[in-house]
Simulated scan of single mutants.
Amino acid sequence: MKLRQLTQIDQVDASRWDALLPGNYPFLRHAFLAALERSGSVGEGTGWLPAHLIVENSDGSLQALLPLYQKMHSYGEYVFDWQWAEAWERAGQNYYPKLLAAVPFSPVQGPRLLGRCTASQQLIVQALNDTLERGLVSGVNLLFNDDAQSPLLQQAGWEQRLGCQFHWFNRDYRSFDDFLAECSSRKRKNFRKERQSVVAQGITFEWHQGIEISEAHWERFFPFYAETYLKRGQQPYLSRAFFSQLSAGLSDAVRLVFARQDGRDVAGALFLVGDDTLYGRYWGCLEEFDRLHFETCFYQGMDRCIAEGLKRFDAGAQGEHKLVRGFEPVLTQSWHKLQPGLHEAVAEFLQRERAGVRAYQQESTGYLPFRQAT
């Protein structure tokens, strides 16, 4: 087997890359990563330089892969290491560049290091460790992975970091009322009141999916997406071209919803679909409307899960306000291997942090709206 580094995802065929993916997880598909690169959302000038690793057999068949980027900053990651960077630079060292195994701008848990056999995955992990030992980077960070790769990383001396997100689970509901039936009486009233307040403002919703989504739809959506960043004084992470590329290569996974009032768009949200999961990704609104964010980003997504028979709704990172709307606390993880000195200090911090995150997850369940068992 031979290890190869790619400076562009297009240096490997989409069919060979996707053949290693388990199921239909959209964020690791070749088309998604290619859309980021072809649209200029990652690449030169963005602080995200593709450095993907693959392992091939002599016949060219792909045996393992890892989406990898050389990072010159820590934006767009959602696992925050700014304090690590500050401490390392106070010690007279350069924190950047670092290596990041992740899906850019996407805090969604799923597969990261994939291989047909353990030996091919070990080849990639060893290459990452070698890069670190040569002092070329301050560390290697693998974000939002599932459990499949954890034993291998732990054995190689990496440190686990835990996080907490809030996901909604569809327990074979036939309608939103079935979900409400599991909630306390007071919470049911609150949900109905929130949803009715949006109806009372004359707002309706228009869903689009798959190949029916045209360039005109993206022209309508992009100002909403961009406004989310512009109102904070930031430039959007994703270019307008990304959404066209996404639609061209991943149309089966795309769901788009517009909130409309008096015949005009007032908000928009983008979702992606995997095997059994709806992923809420980007939303925006140019005006303020009472409860519109909750309806567009949460309740509409819950309705969509029920309609499509999807089991889980991942509505994005953070947001304790999701708890009272039935989104349950779930642990996420990342793994880190850093330069000597920094690694030991971070490991001690992460040990304490893991205990705190687990306690927070347990405590958070008390804010869920479900009826207590008697």
Rank of each mutant, 00 (worst) to 15 (best):
V357G: 00
R281N: 05
Q11P: 07
G319S: 04
V324P: 07
F298N: 10
L99W: 09
Y360D: 00
C305G: 05
Y367G: 09
L256G: 07
R188W: 12
E182Q: 15
L238N: 05
E159R: 07
F27P: 13
D265Y: 01
V330Y: 00
F191H: 05
A307V: 05
L6Y: 08
G284K: 04
F313L: 10
G139Q: 04
D130G: 05
L3S: 10
V273T: 15
P50N: 03
R171M: 12
L292N: 02
L323H: 04
Q5N: 08
T46G: 09
R195S: 01
P329Y: 00
S138P: 06
Y225Q: 13
S244T: 07
G301N: 04
F242K: 09
D276V: 06
T131Q: 15
A14V: 01
G157S: 05
R4D: 13
F80V: 12
L338W: 00
C305E: 01
L113H: 06
Q93S: 05
H208C: 08
S58I: 11
K193F: 10
Q11L: 15
G280Q: 11
G319D: 08
G115H: 05
S58G: 14
M1K: 13
E37V: 06
T131F: 03
V330C: 00
L338T: 00
G40L: 05
A102K: 02
G263H: 01
F105K: 10
V273H: 09
A91Q: 13
K71D: 06
G263C: 01
Q93E: 03
Q196V: 06
R116L: 14
E353K: 06
F169I: 02
Q126P: 02
R240P: 11
K322L: 03
A19L: 04
